[in-house]
């Protein structure tokens, strides 16, 4: 049950710099922790994030075990045309 919160200004003037804020629900289990019996808790993290603006990639990030749970990513882009933003999170255990 993955849920995400995305904050994008609904409207912007041509050429405006807009901030895009994303919050994705994920446990981000590091893979470095052990249970009480000594067994390793397997790594389960998001490894890649990308944002496409009308099909063109405008932001990409690689994520690593040191990221907190429910990673919050904010970045800027220039509003060039009306269109759709497509976000993709991909990670361990086929998370997508």
């Amino acid at each position: 049950m993955a849920s995400a919160l995305i904050n994008v200004p609904a409207t912007a003037k041509h050429g405006d710099i807009v901030e895009i804020k994303t919050l994705m629900s994920h446990i981000m289990e590091t893979g470095f922790r052990h249970t009480e019996t000594g067994a390793v808790v397997p790594r389960n993290i998001i490894t890649d994030f990308s944002c496409r603006y009308n099909g063109v990639e405008v932001f990409r990030a690689e994520l690593f075990p040191a990221f907190s749970a429910n990673p919050f990513l904010a970045f800027f882009t220039v509003a060039t045309e009306s269109g759709t933003l497509e976000f993709r999170w991909a990670g361990d255990n086929g998370f997508s």
């Binding site: 049950m1 849920s3 995400a4 919160l5 995305i6 904050n7 804020k21 919050l23 629900s25 749970a69 429910n70 919050f72």
Partner: peptide, 17 residues
């Protein structure tokens, strides 16, 4: 104070479901 940055709002979303 920002509902799109507050990670507890993810739990609220789950709660709505």
């Amino acid at each position: 104070s920002d509902d799109t940055a507050n990670p507890a709002m993810l739990a609220v979303l789950d709660g709505e479901m």
